[in-house]
Design a binder for these strands. Structure first.
Length: 566
RNA sequence: UGCCUGAUGGUGUAAUGGUAGCACGAGUGACUCUGGAUCACUUGGUCGAGGUUCGAAUCCUCGUCGGGCAACCA
């Protein structure tokens, strides 16, 4: 240790770790840390869930504790095994392994017994009001509720009714079990909350064994308690439920986990509502749950994001109780940072324009050395074919360039990456439309590899592909799903789908790729030099390659253009 | 009109009564065979008003503003 060394940066912390540290110090849970990730299998997981997953599993890892994956499957009407499967895949993909794979439905019998105990203690009753009546009697935010006419049934009558509910004697909605707490409680959740409802529905795990199902509040805390969870971490909207969570556990004298709430993730140009995501899928606004524009984990995986980048992102954004809106560039930056280190560079021309090297021998082909990843010497190098007719990016040429544009233009010399220095001699246009269809250039034979023996410099290096050797591929250019930053700003009553970005997907049917890409396999990631990071789509075939743009590279020129336009 | 909860640069997040720091963004420059990467520097903040204290982002009081809550959803 030298005195010159900078002081160690403080380890990143958050209020939940502080609570755990304090609990460990006081011995509240005997030094144990046990968390759980409790998704309802009613949709695909999204980036917001990734935050929760990283938090819960990360805490267990950090403290040498445990983390369960528990499906909160108490509503058979909305749930499905498709979701159960996708959720497990997503958690694994993120790099986490649960200690126990559990289902709230595993506890249905135990929880049912708890309900009977509550009835026997006079703390729960069967209400035979309709949904409307219950709503009426519950009162409002500012006015106390009134007791149901069935509130004072005897324990024996309640027990009899409840058992007959379970036995299937009643149709849906005929009765419901309610906790007997306080109809004038300031917290609406404490105004005799419903505990069980009758649902003659087949459950994806328990089949037709049950026709009554417990509600979230009645199930969740008991599940935590049964599993020995220490810190039950959930999002802010459950804050008002904590008194009920505590009450239900305490009246039965059960082991009491601590519920802690944190703010869910919001991202600009994104939307995290499961319901609306489902709507996008059902209205075919996107191709499915794993459409690369979706904020789902399946979507961003298909888009080419890495689990490492996702975990780094979740670490980066922190955990608080503040309702925040994180800029999407933070996410994009995380994947750039990761891929910059590991993605091999290749050359691909997305919007090609043909150039002909007038002084290059007609049938000559050279194999030029190209480094695969300047950030990683161990990635080695490859050979790329060079010939008389090439494609370059249309944007890399301007006939009348503005001051700050230093790519190709008439009379100007630029470097072809790993190739030669070339100079544009003339422009060939379609006489009918005036459109530029070809550039006539000359190359300097002395500059093979990209350096001039006389030491002269060029301002720009551009990418290219040999026309004769090019591989065609479909390239899907993705952009933000929403055109506005804050989806929450959309006025109530207005159709939020009007704010979808019409250019969130631009398909380029025939981009020109360098030869080495013919063998690209689904899932492969690479950087198209100067354009961005791309990955091979799962639908890609050897005779029809498909690439997804994960994220563009930072683009200084685009920034300059934007400034000039403004 | 009730209850719960929150407020630190443009954004996100540290500080636990003792120099307001970090990351991203933005700006400037260096370097560069990717207008990438990297490096350096700069910019800019404690919601308001009182109070306690030698000292307050932090504690107290009163405001202001934001979020959540009235499914037999989770």
């Amino acid at each position: 240790m030298s005195t010159e060394e900078k002081p160690e940066p403080a380890p990143p912390t958050n209020f939940i770790r502080e609570i755990i540290d304090a609990d460990n110090l006081s011995g509240k849970f005997g030094g144990r840390v046990h968390t759980r990730f409790p998704p309802e299998p009613n949709g695909y997981l999204h980036i917001g869930h990734a935050k929760s997953i990283c938090l819960n599993f990360g805490l267990a890892l950090k403290y040498g504790g445990k983390c369960n994956l528990r499906f909160d499957d108490t509503n058979p009407a909305k749930e499905d095994v498709e979701y159960v499967d996708s959720i497990q895949e997503d958690v694994r993909w993120l790099g986490f392994q649960w200690d126990n794979l559990l289902y709230a439905s595993d506890y249905f019998e135990t929880i049912y017994q708890y309900a009977e105990q509550l009835i026997e203690k006079g703390l729960a009753y069967v209400d035979s009001c309709t949904t409307d009546e219950i709503r009426q009697l519950r009162g409002t935010l500012t006015h106390a509720g009134k007791p149901s006419p069935y509130r004072d049934r005897s324990a024996a009558e309640n027990l009899d009714l409840f058992r007959r509910m379970r036995a299937g004697e009643f149709p849906d909605g005929a009765h419901a079990l309610r906790a007997k707490i306080d109809l004038s409680h300031a917290n609406m959740n404490m105004r005799d909350p419903l505990l069980y409802r009758i649902r003659h529905a087949e459950h994806h795990r328990t089949g037709n064994k049950w026709c009554i199902y417990p509600l979230y509040d009645f199930t969740h805390g008991y599940s935590d308690s049964l599993e020995g969870v220490t810190h039950s971490i959930c999002t802010l909207e459950f804050e008002n439920h904590r008194p009920l969570y505590d009450w239900l556990i305490d009246v039965l004298g059960l082991y009491h986990p601590q519920q802690i709430e944190f703010a869910r993730l919001n991202l600009t140009h994104m939307m995290m509502s499961k319901r609306k995501l489902l709507e996008l899928v059902e209205t075919k606004s996107v191709t499915g749950w794993d459409d690369p524009r979706m904020p789902t984990i399946a979507g961003i995986r298909r888009r080419g994001y890495t689990p490492e980048a996702m975990r780094a992102f979740c670490e980066e954004i922190g955990v608080t109780k503040f309702n925040s809106l994180t800029e999407i560039v933070v996410l994009e930056n995380a994947v750039r940072a990761d891929l910059n280190k590991r993605a091999n560079r290749v050359m691909a021309v997305i919007h090609p324009i043909k150039i002909v090297l007038e002084n290059y021998p007609d049938d000559q082909v050279e194999e030029l050395d190209a480094i695969n990843n300047p950030e990683d010497p161990s990635a080695g190098s490859r050979r790329v074919p060079f010939s008389k007719v090439l494609y370059i990016e249309r944007d890399d040429f301007m006939e009348t360039p503005p001051k700050q544009f230093f790519r190709l233009s008439p009379g100007r010399e630029v470097r072809l990456r790993w190739g030669y220095l070339i100079t544009c001699q003339s422009v060939v246009k379609d006489p009918a439309t005036g459109e530029i269809i070809e550039l006539r250039c000359t190359y300097d034979p002395l500059t093979r590899g990209g350096n001039a023996p006389d030491g002269r410099k060029v301002k720009s290096t551009i990418h290219w592909v040999s026309a004769a050797h090019a591989v065609d591929a479909e390239v899907r250019l993705y952009d933000h799903l929403f055109s506005i930053p804050n989806v929450a700003d959309i006025p109530e009553g207005e159709d939020w789908k009007n704010y979808l970005n019409p250019k969130s997907l631009v398909v380029v049917p025939a981009a020109k790729l360098e030869r080495s890409l013919v063998t690209a396999q689904p899932g492969d990631r690479c950087q198209f030099e100067r354009l961005g990071y791309f990955c091979v789509d799962k639908d890609s075939k050897s005779d029809k390659l498909i690439f997804n743009r994960t994220v563009t590279l930072k683009d200084e020129w685009a920034k300059i253009q934007k400034k000039q336009g403004a």
